[in-house]
């Protein structure tokens, strides 16, 4: 949608959406999302509450399928494949596109079993100990937990739990990691740790992150999409993309007044 982006994106696009409208029943939650998400980069979705950023990100791994009234118009392509084609298995989609949620949600199992859960589902035949260690190390959690892999994942602190969830997502070796406000429930120090981690992870993964924290988007993302919300005459609030560009453009010289006002903290 922005000319200077397109040339850069053409070669390595992970997601491409085409006039995506998202509905819950007859309620249109998000409209007209047309965007491309580049490989091995961090793309941030920002915008006021209720603008549909989380709704869009949950379409990328078909997690919205769990909601009965949900359906879409338009297309989402993942590496050229239509994600919502009738022969696509959502379970297979979620194995390649991992997700980290707003509230840390480790299973009430040991730290080890939290990590091993995904690989076991996939029938992983290799050295599980090694995979668990590698995943925890890539989530920068190894020094915190190496002596207590058998203790409960739910006994860790909030920041550690969230890194455990990231390690758990990494363990199934996905292509993409979707993060839905991963730092919303964390203190500033844990937040910085997760942000540092993002920079390391983007070497190997494509990351899409929803955030309410403007500093976080400007500090850690390469591309930023600004979503806004519009109410129709019936009072239904529908989200849409105002502007999508390189992060420094969005934060320093946005083309739209609404973007300018939002990133400078004047509304939202």
């Amino acid at each position: 949608m922005t000319p200077n982006l397109e040339s850069a994106l053409q070669t390595d696009t992970v997601f491409r959406t085409d006039n995506l409208d998202i509905y819950y029943g007859s309620f249109k939650a998000v409209r007209d999302v047309t965007m491309e998400i580049p490989k091995n980069a961090i793309t941030a979705f920002i915008g006021p509450s209720g603008c549909g950023k989380s709704t869009v990100i949950r379409c990328f791994n078909r997690l919205n399928d769990l909601i009965k009234s949900f359906h879409i118009d338009g297309k989402i392509f993942y590496k050229g494949q239509d994600l919502y084609a009738s022969d696509v298995d959502p379970v297979e989609v979620r194995r390649q596109i991992g997700m980290v949620f707003q509230k840390p949600n480790p299973f009430p199992k040991s730290i080890y079993d939290n990590i091993a859960f995904g690989p076991r589902l996939l029938g992983y035949k290799g050295d599980m100990d090694e995979l668990v260690e590698r995943s925890i190390k890539s989530a920068a959690l190894w020094d915190d937990v190496k002596d207590k892999l058998k203790s409960l994942g739910t006994d860790l602190s909030g920041g550690q739990q969230q890194r455990l969830c990231i390690a758990r997502a990494i363990a199934v070796q996905p292509d993409v990691i979707l993060m839905d406000e991963p730092c919303a429930a964390l203190d500033p120090i844990s937040t910085l740790k997760v942000e540092d981690l993002l920079q390391e992870l983007k070497e190997n993964y494509t990351i899409v992150i929803v955030t309410h924290n403007m500093q976080q988007a400007s500090r850690s993302s390469d591309y930023t999409a600004f979503f806004n919300v519009q109410a129709n005459e019936k009072g239904q609030r529908t989200g849409y993309i105002v502007e999508y560009d390189r992060t420094e453009v969005i934060f320093q010289s946005p083309k739209h007044k609404a973007t300018q006002e939002y990133v400078s903290g004047r509304f939202g």
Binding site: E92, V93, R94, G118, V172
Partner: peptide, 10 residues
């Protein structure tokens, strides 16, 4: 917890 499991492809 259910979402976490579904998110891992369960």
């Amino acid at each position: 917890l259910r979402q976490a499991a579904f998110g891992l492809g369960a």
